[in-house]
């Protein structure tokens, strides 16, 4: 049976990227079996019927997989439950009478669009810089031609679980995107198919990442915030591949001149 919770919400409201924002306080009563976003839906229904502008927030699948949603809830990315995206967080994690502070991701690389919505295009730019294996449609060989050890495939899958929500950047005291970049890079760098472009990828993705985001100083906040619980081991692997890339890519440049 569901219980009703009386809550005070402090929600960050901001009209646009260049305007100043502030917290607005709302009072609401919701059932504890509602999801966090359903709670916001409900507040928005009330706001609209009271002739006010509803709170903007990004969301879509509400199954924790599309990566659209994500806000800071009481100073924690995606809120208090570990390994849980905002959409999968349910109100029974809160108590009657709680005050909940809701704020957008904040980073220079993620400018605010409106209220709780931020622009995460920088993530797409990082992928575009090299987060792929260049294989033209139709050019693929038989899928079982290259055996891949199960543990390598499993490790690649661990990295690939990233949903691109941006919680790692939001949680990082330096706004670094190393966990995202490392996960996307190492998924490919660990597989035999990804070897040909391994070192150009490592170089290009790191350089592109640093156009937008801060540096990793090994706090480990990102892996705590990650709804898919991706580990910072992948960051270490990225660091190693980046260093190697500096040598390997130069050697290849030399080979190109010779050849």
């Amino acid at each position: 049976m569901s219980n009703m919770l009386n809550l005070t919400l402090k929600v960050w409201r901001q009209d646009g990227p260049d305007t100043a924002g502030q917290f607005q306080t709302y009072k609401t009563t919701v059932a504890d079996d509602a999801s966090f976003l359903e709670m916001l839906d409900y507040v928005n229904e009330e706001l609209i019927e009271a002739d006010e502008i509803p709170i903007s927030f990004d969301h879509d699948c509400r199954e924790g997989i599309c990566g659209s949603c994500g806000v800071m809830i009481d100073g924690r990315a995606h809120g208090p439950q570990k390994g849980t995206a905002t959409c999968q967080l349910h109100m029974r994690q809160f108590s009657d009478g709680d005050t909940i502070e809701i704020e957008p991701w904040r980073a220079a690389g993620f400018p605010i669009i409106k209220d709780l919505v931020v622009n995460r295009a920088a993530f797409d730019r990082i992928i575009e810089s090299g987060g792929y294996i260049s294989v033209t449609t139709g050019a693929a060989e038989e899928a079982n031609a290259i055996p891949i050890p199960k543990h390598a495939a499993d490790a690649a899958m661990d990295a690939a679980a990233c949903i691109g929500c941006g919680a790692c950047v939001a949680a990082c005291p330096n706004s670094a995107a190393n966990l995202f970049t490392a996960a996307k890079m190492q998924q490919l760098n660990m597989l035999p198919q990804g070897q040909a472009e391994r070192y150009t990828r490592s170089n290009d993705m790191v350089e592109r990442m640093e156009q937008f985001f801060g540096s990793c100083t090994n706090y480990g906040e990102c892996q705590e915030a990650c709804p898919k619980e991706i580990t910072i081991d992948f960051i270490a692997m990225m660091n190693r591949d980046y260093v190697k890339s500096q040598l390997v890519n130069r050697r290849r440049l030399g080979e190109k001149k010779v050849g």
Partner: peptide
């Protein structure tokens, strides 16, 4: 074939096959 070549981490058996 295409997805495997793109690096989609399909589940594998111990022998390395899909």
């Amino acid at each position: 074939d295409q997805a495997t070549a793109q690096g989609v981490p399909f589940a594998r058996e111990y022998g390395g096959g899909l």
